[in-house]
Structure formats: C-alpha cells, structure tokens
Design a protein around this nucleic acid. Structure first.
Lengths: 243, 243
DNA sequence: CGCCAGCTTGAATCTACTCAAATCTTGTGG
DNA sequence: CCACAAGATTTGAGTAGATTCAAGCTGGCG
C-alpha cells in the first residue's frame, strides 16, 4: 500500500469534492484551509471513532480508506460503510459516537471545521450527511435482497461513484486498497466467495483487476444491468439554484 | 387489524416517548399540542414519503406501523426500517425525501412541529435522528452477519425495545400487526423461512405467538443469548444532566 | 357456507459456506 | 539476485442453510 504523505494532494481533491456538493463561500474556504493545515496521518487499524465514547474532534477524511464497523461477540465483523476521502466523521462533537470507525489503509485526516463557520459549509455538511444516509440505505438493500454476484457489482459501482467526484476514479478505473477479506466484511460474504464472484465478473468481461487496480469496463451499462437507479443525485438540498 | 381511531391514545403515548428522550419544555409541549390537534389517519399501502419527491410536510407518527422501503427492478423489496409511533418522517422540509415510506397498517400521523419551536424540541429531534441511525446500523449487521434465526430474534428484540418506551409493549408482550411476509421483507428472507424460524423459536421456548400477539418469554436473557449489546442508550446528547 | 389471505409443512434445489490445499505477491534478509 | 516468510488470492470438494415450488391448513368475513 502506498504510504500516505501529508502533501496536500488529498486536501485539494477533498475541497473539490465538497465544492461539488455545494458551492463554497470565502468563510468555508478559509475554515477549510485552517483545518487542512492541521492534517495528520493515521495508521491502519487505528480507531478514528470509538462507539459510545465521546467524539473528541470531528474529522474530515483527506486520504485513504476507513470503515465504520460493528463486531458480534463471536468475532463476526460487519462493515457498515466505507469511509472515503471527503467524508466526515463524528459530526456531533461532545456527543457519543454511534459507531466505531477504523482506518483500513493508512489515512490522512484533519479536524473538520465547525459547521457554523459559514452557511455554505453548513450546507455542505448537510449534503454529506444526506449522502451518507443514502449509502446506508444502499447497503441494506445489497445485504438484504441481492445475490452475492449482485452485491459485489453494486458495491464496486457505488465505490466508483463515490471516488469519482473526489478525483480518485476515472474512466471506470480506480484503486481498491483493501483485501478481498475486507470487501467480504462489507458485503456480508466470505472472502472465498467474494473471490469467486470477482472471477465470475472478470470472465463475464464486466471488469478487470490486477493487484489493487480495478477497472469497470462500462460502469453505466453495468449499473443498468444491475438494476441500479442512475447515480445518486449530487445535490440534495432544495433551492440551490446555482450550477 | 384494528382500525385506527384518532382518539388521542396514540398521541399521549408518543408525547411520553419523546419526553423520555429529552425533557420537554413549555414551548415543545405547546407546539406538540397544536400539531396533535391536526392528527389524521393514513390508509395501509398509502405513501407517507416518496423517494425523490420534495417533502411536503414533516410528519410525526402517532399510531400504526409503517416502513421505509426500496424496490429493485424485478420486484424484490427490502424494508430498510420500520416506522413506529414516535418516529419522525421527512425531517428536512423542502428537501427531497431520501426514501419511500409507506403505511403498512392503518396509521395515525400529524404534522411534526418545527424543530425551531423550542430548544428542547430540537434536542428531541436530534435524539430521534441518532436512534434512527443506530437502527439502520443494526439492520445492516442483521442482514450482513446474522443467520436467519438470529435475524428474527434480533429484530423482534429491537421492535420490543422500540415499542416499550412508547407504551406499546410490556413484559415482553406486544402486537405485531404485520404479516410474516412483511417481516421477511425486513429480514432479507422469504416468508416461508421466517415462518420456520418462528416455529423453531417457539419450540425452543423463546417466544409464543398466536395471531398477531407476540410474547418474548425473557427479552433480557434472549438478548444476551443473541449477543445483543444492552438495549440502546436512551440519551444520546451529552450534557443533559437532568433525569 | 365458501372464499381468500395468511400460515404451515414437505421435498428438491441451489447458493454460499467451510475446510483444505495450492499458488501468487510482496517485502526482507542473506 | 535469490531464498524465504507472511499474507493474500485462487481453486476444489463436501456441507449447511435458505430458497423454490407445491400442497394442505386455518381463521375471519361476506
């Protein structure tokens, strides 16, 4: 896995992604700049948020992949949601975190600016929250009503759609910096079966992957085939107008 | 199914439930009283919220069961979450609803007072939102990592824990006003298999049910056996102090 | 009484899991 | 540069769990 350098590459991508959700005003840009200056790396397996513990400091993810996870007593693990660059963690400071979040790969994070810093920032946060909710819903449908093959395709399409606006995916191509075991924990499957489904998709010509580089040969067509409603709407809040 | 009479029985239960989440102040009680006066019935299968359509009016559920649902193209259906008395729907007026919500049984709803009506009401809404998120997480873990038997038990325990503070469950006993097919749609199983799992639980002495009346013989013990972390914390927000 | 929806049960099938082993990768040290 | 170790991916065979299809049963209601 490529080590994360806090060199600002993630930062500029993340700002661009946030700006796409809602146009940023000067206050927002300033607050973000100040926060970005305090970026720091996070080691894999380190906890970003601990379920039940008060949130010390809300975080903005700049680089790397994390996951919100929950464990059962016997060791089974379920990933509720991947945490990707541009995502927010622990939106309510002081409140108890509703879930544990860990770094899966090396990550880079910074403190999330207060949502009160600017009206635009508040709108961005609302949009991020709405998207997060939508992804939780999508995860439920995947786990509840899709076959293993459909789950794999659907998750990869979702990851593509989430990474693309952050500048981390293009032309159906992106890096999946996690093991098939991690994907399995998100998909409610075993790693062995995830592997078989990936082989199947590869043989069907739907995708190719070598190492950690994945390519969806035709995301739009795949999405239609998988019965995916068009990519999530980018704008959530009403009355935006611009753009 | 018992027809819903808009007689205020649901209303008082719901106010009590909300008050348990956060003490109500006078402003909140007044706003609620005004809203409750505008209670109205909703027929089964009627949509309370339509995915993608703007929310006309945020709703407070007073009686009956609903569900947030999503459909796949081929007719498969997944219930994301049950909507029970005391729940809120369409928290963001004007915004697009992120999901479709339907009445499963006859319901009674009223407009949800503006969250700006009082600080206490705002806190209550935040607590309700936090609980909702927690239930989404629980649903994901059920669908992703639990066996059919565990899923059934876990969902019934969750329903008990949600209905109890609303005064709709006592001593492990409550009414499940939906068919096994509806439970199956929430559990990611077939109705046939849900039935088998219920039979098994009944034979194991964990519960009894006849018609729509369900009794969990020992919810606490069942929860422990099912590896359920203690019932969800009631208070979410920090710095509450009172009570 | 008969109908209909929902519940119950059985048998066959299929999906995904388990267990096990082989292969491939990547990083490390000689 | 090669050998090796550790982790990850790949493949196979057998099994368990959930589905499908089908039929019988039950209870409420016209």
């Amino acid at each position: 896995v490529t080590p994360i350098r806090c060199d600002g590459a993630g930062a500029s991508r993340v700002v661009a992604r946030l700006a796409r959700l809602h146009p940023l005003d000067d206050g927002a840009r300033e607050a973000l700049a100040a926060a970005l200056a305090r970026a720091r790396p996070v080691q894999p397996r380190r906890e970003l948020l601990q379920e039940g513990a008060p949130v010390r400091e809300p975080l903005l993810v700049l680089d790397g992949w994390g996951a919100k996870v929950r464990h059962l007593l016997d060791g089974r693990r379920q990933i509720l949601q991947f945490v990707l660059p541009g995502d927010l963690l622990g939106r309510e400071p002081k409140a108890q975190a509703p879930v544990t979040a860990i770094a899966v790969t090396p990550m880079e994070v910074c403190p999330a600016p207060e949502r009160t810093a600017s009206p635009a920032l508040d709108a961005v946060y609302a949009a991020v929250a709405a998207l997060e909710e939508a992804y939780l819903h999508a995860q439920i449908v995947r786990l509840g009503r899709m076959s293993a093959h459909e789950r794999v395709i659907d998750l990869l399409l979702e990851l593509y759609e989430r990474l693309e606006p952050a500048g981390l995916a293009q032309d159906g191509r992106f890096t999946v910096p996690v093991t098939q075991e991690v994907l399995a924990d998100a998909l409610g499957l075993t790693a062995v079966h995830v592997n078989r489904m990936l082989q199947r998709a590869r043989r069907a010509g739907d995708l190719s992957f070598s190492g950690r580089e994945l390519m969806l040969h035709d995301p739009a067509a795949l999405g239609r085939k998988a019965g995916r409603p068009r990519p999530w709407p980018r704008r959530i809040a009403a009355g935006d107008g611009s753009g």
